[in-house]
């Protein structure tokens, strides 16, 4: 589904954020990307739907080359859902309007159709009662659940999560993770940048560990948590799992 091969990316002439990154996410697979901050994991996931350009290598998404100038990027992006650290709901639109905007403007669905779809997804993430509120009237956890519903409204073939719980209070993290776990169980293809190792050990198929722009470890979940091969991954795990 997602094929990342030999991706190199530089900021400016000398700072290399991604170094020869190669990995893949198969259909229905859940892959968790972790690593210390500044390791390039958010940058990598943003390369997948071309929010960030990269200079070398290639990414193929459902058979379509992302870094081909001939690719219709808006059309491709519409097929991949993305959830951000800071939710990024559109503050001037009601919750239901947030879900309808891209359905109508990008997919060309009628307003009624979009509302019906939006209602269904809000129900699914437990936010139906808030459909007519504005984002600023919701808590962080609620906003993030709406953001997931907004992405799902586009009927995505895969979902990208960029630290979806990092900006949340501890008590709101679980409500968002619950939605993500359900999604994983339903067979959604997911690439998740997160520090939630509980989530990783519960639903991930594979775990990728990044450090300084490199993919240091790319292992099956059991191997990763059992006996990571690299020293850096061992250190990282011991730090975040010790408390």
């Amino acid at each position: 589904m997602i094929e990342i091969s030999h991706v190199n990316k530089w900021y400016g002439p000398s700072f290399q954020v991604l170094k020869d990154c190669t990995t893949s996410v198969a259909k229905g697979e859940v892959v968790v990307v972790c690593g210390p901050s500044g390791s390039g994991k958010s940058t990598l996931i943003k390369c997948v739907n071309a929010l960030e350009p990269f200079q070398e290598g290639q990414i193929i998404l459902d058979g379509i080359k992302v870094n081909d100038p001939k690719t219709d990027l808006p059309k491709l992006r519409a097929r991949v859902g993305m959830v951000f650290q800071h939710f990024e709901l559109f503050p001037h639109l009601r919750i239901i309007e947030n879900l309808c905007l891209a359905q109508e403007k990008v997919l060309g669905r009628s307003h009624d159709e979009a509302v019906a779809k939006g209602d269904k997804l809000l129900e699914r993430v437990g936010m139906k009662a808030h459909a007519n509120k504005y984002p600023a009237e919701l808590s962080g956890g609620q906003q993030q659940r709406v953001a997931i519903a907004r992405a799902l409204a586009m009927d995505p073939i895969a979902m990208l999560f960029d630290e979806p719980t990092s900006a949340l209070d501890p008590e709101m993290i679980s409500e968002v993770l619950d939605v993500m776990v359900d999604l994983a169980h339903e067979g959604m293809t997911m690439m998740v940048v997160t520090h939630e190792m509980g989530f990783a050990s519960k639903v991930a198929n594979r775990v990728i560990f990044m450090d300084k722009g490199e993919i240091v470890e790319d292992a099956q979940k059991t191997d990763f948590f059992g006996s990571p091969r690299s020293e850096r991954a061992q250190k990282f795990l011991s730090k975040i799992l010790s408390h």
């Binding site: 929010l51 992006r77 951000f84 800071h86 559109f90 905007l101 403007k105 907004r150 586009m154």
Partner: peptide, 20 residues
């Protein structure tokens, strides 16, 4: 992130400006 969110949903640059 607002622009990125609009872009990620498949809105074109013009649509992103107009609606977001």
């Amino acid at each position: 992130g607002q622009k990125q969110a609009a872009t990620a949903l498949g809105l074109t640059t013009a649509q992103g400006y107009r609606y977001v």
